[in-house]
Simulated assay, not measured.
Amino acid sequence: MAPGLEPRDDGASPPRSVLFMCGMNAIRSPMAEVLAKALLPPGTYIASAGVKTGERDPFVDVVLDELGLTAGRHEPHTLDQLEDDYFDMIVTLAPEAHHTALELTRSMAVDVEYWPTADPTATRGTRDQILAAYRDVRDHLETLIRHRLLGQSPRKMP
């Protein structure tokens, strides 16, 4: 069976549309978007946005490429720039994104989950040390997507 298409342990279906939000849509949320598109069933609508606009981070491309994935032509954007604004689930990856999502969804029937995720730009050191921090974020997000959105228990994760 293809990765990401295994039945959930709890019998529930993955959400049909997911928005990943972080501070600037430059690292965590676009990384989660690419990973989710690779793991979730075909037909799942997945997007990402930031509270404010940032600049594309080349380290994201490096760590995604290690898995054979790409962010393509992704350019950081805000919620206001999204084509669609209805989602079954909003996953926030930074405190400011979580507060914004809760405020925006106060009168909407949408699940908002906070997945605290480190900001790898805070890491100082050699290029290898910085890349290790980005890999940690990538691997953390992949684990959460598999567990929270696909319902896979840790024993099923590669």
Rank of each mutant, 00 (worst) to 15 (best):
M31N: 06
A133W: 03
P154F: 14
E142Y: 02
E75G: 02
D9H: 14
R155M: 12
G54C: 09
V34Q: 03
H140A: 11
S153N: 13
M108N: 13
H147K: 07
A133C: 04
A133T: 02
R155G: 08
L5W: 05
A101K: 04
E66C: 10
A94L: 06
T70V: 13
L102F: 11
T92S: 14
R8P: 01
I145P: 05
E103V: 12
A122T: 14
H74L: 08
A12R: 09
D128L: 12
Q129G: 01
D10G: 02
L64V: 05
L150S: 01
P14I: 01
Y134G: 00
M24F: 10
L102P: 03
G23T: 15
C22D: 12
P30I: 02
D85M: 04
A2C: 07
T53F: 06
A47G: 08
C22N: 04
E96I: 09
P158F: 11
C22R: 06
A49P: 03
N25F: 11
A133Y: 02
R124G: 14
E96R: 11
H147E: 09
L93Y: 05
T143R: 13
Y45V: 14
A94G: 09
A71Y: 08
M1I: 11
L93S: 06
I46K: 10
P3Q: 15
L64S: 00
A109F: 07
E83Q: 08
T78E: 05
A109R: 11
Q81D: 15
V51Q: 14
V110M: 13
R56C: 06
R146V: 00
P95Y: 13
S48Y: 13
E6M: 00
L5N: 08
D61M: 05
P154S: 06
R135D: 04
L79E: 09
V63C: 12
A118K: 04
P7H: 11
L79A: 14
S17L: 04
L69I: 09
R124H: 15
D10M: 02
A71T: 03
E103A: 14
Y86T: 15
M24L: 07
L144K: 04
R127Y: 11
R148H: 10
K156L: 13
S13P: 00
A38R: 04
H147P: 00
T121A: 15
D136C: 06
L104F: 05
T53H: 13
L104I: 07
P14T: 00
P95G: 14
G54I: 08
A97G: 05
T123M: 15
R8C: 00
H98M: 01
R148M: 02
D128W: 06
A36W: 06
D84V: 12
L69W: 10
S48Q: 11
Y134S: 13
L149R: 08
